[in-house]
Design a protein around this nucleic acid. Structure first.
Lengths: 211, 211
DNA sequence: ATATTTACGCAACGGTAGTAGCGTAAATGG
DNA sequence: CCATTTACGCTACTACCGTTGCGTAAATAT
């Protein structure tokens, strides 16, 4: 798949590794907004121009980094759609909260920290190509839970007319809305109530059905 | 309520007006990220220090500006909760889309523009006090539709157990999720489907009831 | 071997956010 | 009238993002 045999001096893979490691450290230490390209270059022992040869802006670098390190959220399919969704969304909420706190932990200073998710959203809005990466990221991330909903409908656990996509928007949207906009807490009880209320209209059985 | 009779030279109200006007113009022309404080100062014929005496950062200024100019979205209560919600959410979606395009219109250049909403969300995550302003903004903005849902439940058009707040999260959340994260389009048809699916579980009558 | 191509490091630069120091202007309090 | 207090304008400064120019290093092509 990849033996392009390019002409000039090849990119230093070593530099790639060192840059991404330094960036990872720095993101965790400082958060998105206090993250400085100059310091990445210094820590990776690389000229700043080498950074910009690979990623045109700080946003591009950080989105690429997050895309690389984002942990997959596993999806269980026990046949009990209500339970499976609760478990999945709770895991997502935990992950989001951890992302939100990145850069806040080691500094006892004034809380000017990032909110990585919010910054990624802004970066996606600033640069169309970053937006593509972010949307792709979420598309891959959401594929499994969407498939879960589709299977549930096929087995008759959801009303046939309901759209999996809209259903997922209701669930994930509520979480992100609270995280990014209202700042309201997202506890296990909230997730439970949300899933219950979303599934109430779908004819989901309160107890699991087997295929 | 306010005659504090302060000691020294008073703030120039004239400067306040000129600054906010200049900022408004500049935000519309350039969008959030290309908005430059230096240029605001120049256009308002004011020293840059005068800006920073009033708002500690660019984010603070722009959030204050948006809070000031945001247009109220009116809420009709015809007794048909399904219809009222559709109308309301469509108005919100239109407003959001207009906000998203701010700064893109007059430049034929490369599309690096802002997405005011995304930047506000990021600003709220960066500065706790800006977060307070933003949350307050949304709380006021959402008061009327929430009251609409409460009245609907009281008159029996919604199942008694359903939470207005969670219900609203499903609706607004789906919109903002599409706007900020997935970038999926938000048409009138989508709003219709969303409202239908959200209300399906609430026992909302398909035709209005009168009290 | 030599030419070509691409990457690297280095240094300097322009643009923007935000800060600091200082002299001056406009208000209040005695 | 005069001291005090706060606002204003001006200049200069630091920090960071992103760019440019140039000399050098490492690969391929002939």
């Amino acid at each position: 798949m990849t033996a392009p045999v390019r002409r000039g001096r090849p990119r230093s893979e070593n530099a790639d590794v060192r840059i991404l490691e330094a960036a990872h450290e720095l993101l965790v230490e400082r958060g998105y907004d206090r993250f400085a390209m100059d310091e990445v270059a210094a820590r990776a022992a690389v000229a700043k121009t080498t950074l910009y040869r690979r990623w045109p802006t700080k946003d591009h670098l950080l989105v690429a980094l997050v895309a690389k390190i984002q942990d997959e959220v596993s999806v269980a399919d026990t046949g009990d759609i209500r339970r499976d969704l609760s478990v999945y969304l709770t895991a997502v909420a935990t992950g989001l909260d951890r992302m939100r706190r990145v850069g806040r932990d080691l500094t006892g200073e004034e809380d000017r920290s990032a909110g990585v998710v919010a910054e990624l959203v802004a970066a996606a809005a600033r640069h169309p190509d970053v937006g593509d990466v972010v949307r792709n990221l979420f598309a891959r991330r959401n594929a499994l839970p969407l498939a879960l909903l589709d299977r549930a409908r096929e087995r008759g656990a959801l009303a046939p007319g309901t759209s999996s996509e809209v259903l997922f928007d209701q669930l994930a949207g509520a979480l992100y809305y609270r995280l990014l906009v209202t700042g309201a807490p997202i506890g296990a009880d909230y997730v439970e109530e949300l899933v219950g209320q979303v599934l109430a209209g779908t004819g989901a059985t309160r107890h699991p059905e087997r295929t």
